[in-house]
């Protein structure tokens, strides 16, 4: 009974630094600079619909590619011997320990007009291609930064799939394709939905990747929010409205995919 008191400092902290700030975002989103209630910030989002759709489009593409690449990788790792699984996982996680700014910077080096890839292609008299400052480069940056977030949850459910279930299906005449669609994918549902959330959420809200690899012409919703708070077009009210819209998108995606496989929550 007494030990409940121990959580009071945290509950106060949580209210001041988590609940109130989110309340402030909502408050700013619906007020003018003089503090009057308004919908104009939300209505002003109309001008940024293209940016919003671009953010969603890019992150959906990145999430799908991460899923397609992540499935075979995770399955392969999950079927290795125990010790090897650990090593392979470490190989996948290791790049995540390097700050994402450095990882994204590395791609700038590779993709530039006279970067390494173009110089390499130049040896065969091909190119130079315009590899950076386009939508493809931004999506590539998202995939590169967040694909481990797809592989990890997939691996953690796939490693629990009993090999004998797969063998039983094979014995009963299941083809390779049907083993994937009828056994592996259904049993990995939970990992797939967790992976989709953990790749989609940071992708749709990023503002650095688009700035470093998109060259200013591929601004995403994160860039616009950032510029409302720190950039030239300072307007925290509009910025808050955008943050609110972004939050709604994230909540929608999460409820959609959490429902999809919520039998047991894995964190």
């Amino acid at each position: 009974m007494k030990s409940k008191i121990l959580s009071i400092p945290y509950i106060i902290w949580m209210i001041i630094f988590t609940v109130i700030p989110l309340g402030l975002v909502i408050f700013f989103a619906f007020t003018t600079q003089s503090g009057e209630f308004t919908f104009s910030n939300i209505v002003a989002m109309n001008d940024y619909l293209d940016v919003l759709f671009r953010s969603i489009e890019f992150s959906v593409i990145a999430t799908i590619i991460c899923l397609i690449l992540g499935l075979p990788v995770s399955y392969l790792i999950s079927r290795l011997a125990r010790g090897k699984q650990g090593t392979m996982l470490m190989i996948v996680i290791l790049p995540m320990w390097i700050n994402f700014l450095l990882r994204t910077y590395a791609w700038m080096t590779l993709l530039e007009e006279n970067g390494l890839i173009n110089r390499f292609l130049g040896l065969f008299n091909v190119g130079p291609f315009n590899l950076i400052n386009n939508s493809g480069a931004v999506i590539l940056g998202m995939i590169y930064n967040y694909i481990p977030f797809m592989i990890l949850p997939l691996y953690s459910v796939m490693t629990k799939i009993d090999e004998s279930v797969v063998e039983a299906a094979q014995d009963l005449g299941c083809s390779g394709f049907h083993i994937i669609t009828r056994i592996i994918l259904p049993l990995s549902k939970q990992g797939i939905s967790t992976g989709i959330i953990t790749v989609f959420v940071p992708s749709v809200s990023t503002f650095i990747i688009s700035r470093m690899l998109g060259g200013g012409t591929n601004d995403l919703i994160g860039d616009i929010i950032e510029s409302q708070f720190l950039g030239n077009s300072y307007n925290p009210h509009l910025g808050s409205a955008m943050a609110l819209v972004l939050m709604v998108i994230v909540i929608l995606i999460m409820s959609l995919f959490n429902q999809f496989g919520s039998e047991e929550a894995v964190i």
Partner: peptide, 12 residues
């Protein structure tokens, strides 16, 4: 999203 944690604390 981290950006929302960031801007919400900034407002506070």
């Amino acid at each position: 999203p981290e950006i929302i944690t960031g801007v919400s604390l900034m407002l506070l």
